[in-house]
């Protein structure tokens, strides 16, 4: 196929004959951070994030950062959805894990099968960051998040977000994402509420293929 490669590149160069030969190909684009560059206090970001993720139909429980408080909120979410078995990434903080629930750990060396993930129905993870402006969670495969299939096949996703992880806008989050993409091969997923479709008469329906219920435990 190298023939096609050379042909296409040659066609592009011929098509761009109007571009001066000495024009810079890549003047660096800087991230434009925020609308006014003002740092917003954490409590503002926290309530904005909560309100916006709720707009998508996710449920938000606010707790303190105390491990016992997080654990209790996770336990309540399990009760709400009748969850008895919970898939978790192998490195999820143990202090988040509620008692009386069967836990299935997904480890890089011993991954759960697709069928098991499909049957388990619920997953508990942390996240890499969150965006207040858009109610978005960033998953980058880092600590406490696991691989992508884990948060995809379950019907309920319980996600712990620490207030200190919330940034103001998409640009701040993407600056961090850029570092991950530049330095690793880890995939990144931006999740904004539960799966949804507007394919039928443009009426939004929550829940098609990804998790249909999203429970956010907002700590701090």
């Amino acid at each position: 196929m190298s023939g096609a490669r050379e042909v296409v590149l040659a066609r592009i160069r011929a098509a761009l004959c109007d571009v001066p030969a000495d024009e810079q190909a890549a003047p660096p684009t800087a991230f434009v951070l925020g609308d006014d560059g003002l740092e917003e206090p954490a409590f503002v970001l926290r309530s904005r994030f909560a309100a916006r993720v709720e707009d998508y139909g996710a449920r938000v429980t606010r707790v303190s950062v105390a491990p016992a408080a997080i654990r209790a909120a996770v336990a309540q979410a399990c009760v709400r959805h009748g969850i008895r078995r919970l898939a978790v990434p192998g490195d999820v903080p143990v202090e988040w894990l509620p008692p009386g629930i069967e836990l299935l750990a997904d480890e890089p060396g011993a991954p759960l099968s697709r069928a098991t993930l499909d049957e388990t129905g619920a997953v508990l993870t942390g996240c890499a960051g969150a965006i207040a402006q858009t109610g978005t969670i960033v998953l980058d495969g880092g600590p406490g998040q696991g691989r992508r299939a884990l948060t995809l096949l379950a019907d309920v996703h319980v996600c712990v977000v620490l207030v200190e992880q919330i940034v103001g806008d998409v640009s701040e989050a993407l600056a961090a994402v850029g570092a991950v993409l530049g330095q690793t091969r880890r995939p990144v997923t931006l999740v904004s509420g539960p799966s949804a479709t507007s394919d039928i008469e443009l009426e939004r329906v929550e829940g098609v293929h990804g998790p249909r219920r999203m429970e956010i435990v907002l700590a701090g």
Binding site: T134, G141, T184, R186, T189
Partner: peptide
């Protein structure tokens, strides 16, 4: 404000496999 899912991947993720 944002679509539900934006997926970003780079080649083949192998450390850890994903």
């Amino acid at each position: 404000r944002m679509n539900p899912y934006t997926s970003l991947w780079t080649g083949v993720a192998d450390d850890p496999p994903d």
